[in-house]
C-alpha cells in the first residue's frame, strides 16, 4: 500500500512568551489511520495538536516558528484561511461541547455557517455524520431535542458528527474520552476505528492502553520534544528510546 504524507511539521517551535513549549518538532502524518500523541502532562502534545489547525492563534503571546504544511500548503502563510483550515482539519475536545441547541442543529452548524440551506441535503448530512459517529441509532428519534440532554458519551459522538459534517480530511482529538466512563470511551474508540479507513486521525491521550488499542502509530513527547515515533506495537513491545520505555512502563510521568 502506498501512502502519502498529508500533514508535515518541520522544526516547529512554539513559545508562550519566552517559554519554549515546542522545541523543533519534525513529524509527518500519512493519509488515513490513527496516530496517538502521548507523554507526561506539560510535554507539549496538546500544544502540538493545536498548532495543527491553528487553535493556538487564540492564545495571546504565542509565537510559532518553523513550518506546518497541510498537503504542501503552509498552514501559517499570511493568506491562509483559518476557517477553511479548521473545516479540513477538525477538532474534538476533552469535554464534550455541544452547542445549546438541538442535535440536528449541532451537526449542521458548520454547513449552515457556510450558507447551506437545502433541507434535503442537510438531512442527508445529519444522518450520514451521525451514522459515521456511531450514534445515529441512539438519537435518530430525538434529533430536534437538545443535545445537552444526551449522556457525555453521546454528546462526544455528536461532537464527532459535527466535525464529520463538514467533510474534513483530518480529525484532531484532544483527550476525547478522559471525561467519559469506560463504556462510553470504548464506544468512542470503536467509532474512531471505523473512521480510520477514511480519515487521518490524530489523538492526544493520557490513556496508554487506549493508544495501544487503537493507534497505528504512536508518538512520544517529553519536555517539548518528540522523543520517538514508531508503529504502536514497536513502541509498546520494544521502544528504541529508554525514556519512552520508562514512561509507558509507568516508571515516571
Amino acid at each position: 500500500m502506498t501512502t502519502k504524507e498529508i500533514l508535515t511539521t518541520q522544526d516547529l517551535h512554539l513559545y508562550y512568551g519566552s517559554n519554549e513549549a515546542l522545541k523543533g518538532i519534525n513529524l509527518s502524518f500519512e493519509e488515513k489511520g490513527i496516530t496517538a500523541l502521548i507523554g507526561p502532562s506539560g510535554c507539549g502534545k496538546s500544544t502540538y495538536l493545536r498548532t495543527l489547525n491553528r487553535m493556538n492563534d487564540l492564545i495571546p503571546g504565542v509565537t510559532i516558528t518553523g513550518t506546518a504544511e497541510f498537503k504542501g500548503e503552509d498552514l501559517y502563510a499570511p493568506n491562509a484561511d483559518t476557517v477553511q483550515i479548521r473545516k479540513e482539519i477538525g477538532m474534538v475536545f476533552q469535554q464534550p461541547n455541544p452547542f445549546p441547541f438541538s442535535i440536528y442543529d449541532n451537526v449542521i452548524y458548520g454547513l449552515r455557517i457556510a450558507g447551506e440551506r437545502d433541507k434535503e441535503k442537510l438531512d442527508a448530512v445529519v444522518e450520514k455524520s451521525l451514522r459515521q459517529a456511531a450514534v445515529w441509532d441512539e438519537v435518530k428519534d430525538h434529533l430536534h431535542e437538545s443535545a445537552l440532554a444526551l449522556s457525555g458519551g453521546q454528546q462526544q459522538r455528536v461532537c464527532i458528527a459535527r466535525v464529520l459534517a463538514v467533510s474534513p480530511e483530518i480529525i484532531l482529538l484532544d483527550e476525547p474520552t478522559s471525561a467519559l466512563d469506560p463504556v462510553s470511551s470504548s464506544q468512542i474508540e470503536a467509532t474512531l476505528l471505523n473512521l480510520r479507513q477514511d480519515y487521518t486521525i490524530i489523538i492526544v491521550t493520557h490513556n496508554l492502553q487506549q493508544a495501544s488499542r487503537i493507534a497505528d502509530r504512536t508518538a512520544f513527547f517529553m519536555n517539548g520534544e518528540l522523543v520517538e515515533v514508531d508503529q504502536t506495537k514497536n513502541i509498546f513491545m520494544n521502544p528504541a528510546n529508554k525514556q519512552t520505555e520508562d514512561y509507558i512502563s509507568g516508571r515516571f510521568g
Binding site: 492502553q209 509498546f236 513491545m237 520494544n238 521502544p239 520505555e245 509507558i248 512502563s249
Partner: peptide
C-alpha cells in the same frame, strides 16, 4: 498491571 516493553518480555 497490563505490562508493556521489557516488563512484558
Amino acid at each position: 498491571y497490563q505490562p508493556v516493553t521489557s516488563d512484558l518480555r
